[in-house]
Structure formats: C-alpha cells, structure tokens
Amino acid sequence: MSAQFEPVWQALRDKVESGWAPGMVAGIRHGGTTEFFATGVRTLGRAEPMRVDTPFRIASLSKPVAGAIAASMVADGTLAPDDPADVWLPELAYPRVLTSPDAPLESTVPAGHDITVRHLMTLTHGLGVIVGDTPLARAIAAAGIAPGPIPPSMTSEEFMHRVGALPLEHQPGERWSYHTGSDLLSVLMARAGQAPLRQILAERITGPLGLHDTGFLGDAAELPTAYRPGVDGLEILDAPDGVFSREPVFETLAGGLVSTVPDYLAFLTALAEDSLLPAEQRRHMTSDQLTVAQREGMVEMVGPGISWGWQVGVTTDGAGSWTTPGGYGWTGGTGTTAYVNPTADFIGVLFTQRAMAGPEEDFSYFWEPLAAAL
C-alpha cells in the first residue's frame, strides 16, 4: 500500500481500537489506482479477522444499485420516467392523501394525479420515513412495513397490499420522503422486467461487472456479526446465521443487498466512467432531480447541501472537505458509506458492521483524513 493513505488507514485502526466497531473495510480509487484496507475482527470476542473480501449487509447503499437498474431500464425503453406506476403496481392506483400529515387515516382527499415511475425513483411519491408519532406512522409500524435495516418479512405482493391499503402522507410529487419508494421501485422493476429482482440484478449489474460477491444472500461462514449501539455497548442486530444468510422473502433494493468493498467500488467506478450506463442516463441518475419545494424538510434527514437524484444522494454545495458540487453517494444504516468525487477524482467506500445511531451520525473519521491525504 502507498504511504499516501496511511493516515486514513490509521484513523480506521484508531476507531476500531476505541471499541466503536469490531472491524471495518475500506477502499479508495484515485488517479486510476485502487487500494484496500481491512482492520479488526468480524465478531466481538472471536479471532476471525476482517478481510478485504468480507461481505457486509450494505443497507441503503442498495439504493444506488436500484437507481442504476432503473436508469438502464429507461435507457432500453422498458420504463419511461413519466409512466404511471400503477401500470405495474395496480395497488397504487387511485391513491388517497391525508388532509394533513398528522390527520386521522380516514381524513383523506383523492391524489391530484397518478404516482409515476419518476416519483418512485426520486422518492417523491408521497410516503416514507415519518418523524413523529402520527396515526399514519403508527399504522405503518403496525403493518410491519416501517423502514429499517432489516427488509420486511413478507412477500412483495403482501407488502404492496399493505402499502396500498394506507393513504399517502403527501401528494405525489410534492415532497421527498425517504425509503419506501425504493421498496416500491424494487417491486415495479421486477414486474416490468418480468423476472425476479435477483435475476434482473445479475443481468444488468453484477453479471456484466463480474461482481461475484453481491446479491441478496450472504454466507453465514463469512458474514460479520451486525451490531447496533445500545445502552450498555454494542448489541447484536443480526448474527452471521441470521436474516441475511437466508433467501429473502422480499427482494428489495431499498436495503436488501450483501456486498464487499471491492465489488461496490467496482460498481461505482463503472458508473463514474460511464461504462455501466449511457452517459445521459448516468447524468440523470447522479444529478439533482428535486425542486426547492420537494426538498422541504429534507435537511433533517440528510444534512445540508445534499439533494437526491435517481436513488442516490447528490451534493449541491460541497460544504464538506471531501464533497464537491456534482459529487454523489450515500450511506447505509448498518454502517456503510460511499462517495464519488469527480472533481478530486476519487471514489471512497467504507463498510463497518456497527449500525448508525441516527441521521446525526456521520463517517467524517474516514472522509476527513481521506480529503487531507488528497
């Protein structure tokens, strides 16, 4: 490894040695060369070391993969952004919308217009993470379809039935709402592609790029234990032989993928070099697709200077030392982050197995030393 990134690797060693996470793996591509680093162990109290090719549950880093599949379907004419989504998702036909976000479930009006494919790609269809205790938030939790790091434990058909039975929080196209649109887009792409999502993923992304360690199923012998911060330290979120070691009931790119740092870095490299998608579709995917009105309330979830493209966060003002206007990437609630900086010509990926405590947590312990090294 070059000496240039030694301060970055040392920062990761220090973070692991502090007890923040048992282990982590990172990759950096800069100036046409790629370096990887692994530190720590896969499970607390056990000696199995993290390896560069250790698979992780990548949570919402699955979303940019969904964006790339959707963009490829737009490129070949399978989808058009302004198609009504109910062509493939009849459960979303004739949606009702709450009269106000905190209104009773029965207090609704008809939606002003159809939900479109674009609404799902940009997460503006009207339903997602709800901050606060509202009747709709309680109904979403009771239905078992609340956004989280573990995919819903029901078939896609049952998921659609439960979503379709609820009103929207906002009118379609009015406001960005996180996560649920990615689940819906996953179902839509499988139905439009007339194949299981795992097959579409293989045909359009992992097969062409040779990503042999990316999919909906992890190997229990290789997966690290996933943890979340608790009152008395780290608690187990998912064991190596847990949810992600079994065939999923619902294949979703809202947060269902297992991948490795080399695979994910290869995906982002192909995206950035326009070897995965036609340049026009990649530009749509990785540029700001929201209006000022649609971004209202978004900063509380994603922080300042960030908007949304097709299933990926995009930088609008480059306020961070490692960010730039036109850069793009995202984070995953299980403790993963990735970013493409076209101006500084770098791509960074960091996977940990410690779930984020909330939107206020970030990965600056990785990004700041990287920016300084460049």
Rank of each mutant, 00 (worst) to 15 (best):
R246K: 15
F250M: 11
S100C: 01
Q289A: 11
G27Q: 01
E169C: 11
S186T: 13
P208K: 13
Y227A: 04
A195E: 15
Q311T: 10
V117N: 04
V299P: 01
T337S: 15
T337V: 14
R42C: 04
A270E: 01
Y94D: 15
D14Y: 03
S364K: 12
M301G: 14
H179E: 14
E273M: 10
S245L: 13
D133E: 14
E368R: 15
V249R: 12
A38W: 06
P248K: 05
T352M: 06
G358S: 07
A221L: 14
R246A: 15
H161L: 14
L277C: 06
D238A: 15
P208C: 07
T155E: 10
G126S: 08
Q294M: 05
I130N: 08
Y264R: 04
G255N: 10
P152Q: 08
P101Y: 06
T225F: 05
A270S: 07
P359W: 06
H113G: 13
S259G: 07
G335R: 03
T343S: 14
R138Q: 15
G181H: 08
Y178N: 14
E106L: 09
L271F: 10
G233P: 05
V97R: 09
Q353G: 04
R282Q: 10
Y339M: 12
Y94E: 15
P224D: 01
A357L: 08
R162M: 08
I150R: 08
L127G: 00
T39S: 15
G77L: 08
G255W: 03
E17M: 06
A93T: 01
A139N: 07
W9R: 13
P196L: 04
G230I: 09
A373H: 11
A355N: 05
D82I: 00
F56A: 05
Y94F: 11
G45I: 03
R42V: 03
Q4K: 15
T43Q: 15
P224Y: 06
F36W: 06
D14Q: 14
G335K: 02
A202R: 15
T286W: 07
L257S: 05
V109R: 13
L120E: 00
G45N: 09
V65I: 13
V231D: 12
A71M: 10
H119A: 00
T54H: 07
V131Q: 14
V97L: 00
F36T: 10
I306D: 03
W322I: 04
E222Y: 09
T39P: 01
L237D: 01
P359T: 13
M356Y: 12
Q311M: 08
D86V: 00
P55L: 09
G320D: 11
G326E: 04
H170I: 02
L276V: 09
V163K: 05
L92D: 04
M160E: 10
T343H: 10
Q4R: 12
G242T: 05
F244P: 09
S18W: 03
G358P: 04
G77C: 03
V109P: 00
P84G: 02
A70R: 07
F159K: 00
L209Q: 09
D241Y: 09
W9G: 03
S245F: 11
E158F: 04
A344F: 06
D345G: 00
D213I: 06
E158Q: 12
T336P: 03
E169M: 12
D274C: 11
A142N: 07
S245Q: 03
W20L: 07
A357P: 00
L290Y: 00
A220H: 11
I306C: 05
I115R: 08
G19I: 13
L217I: 12
G132R: 01
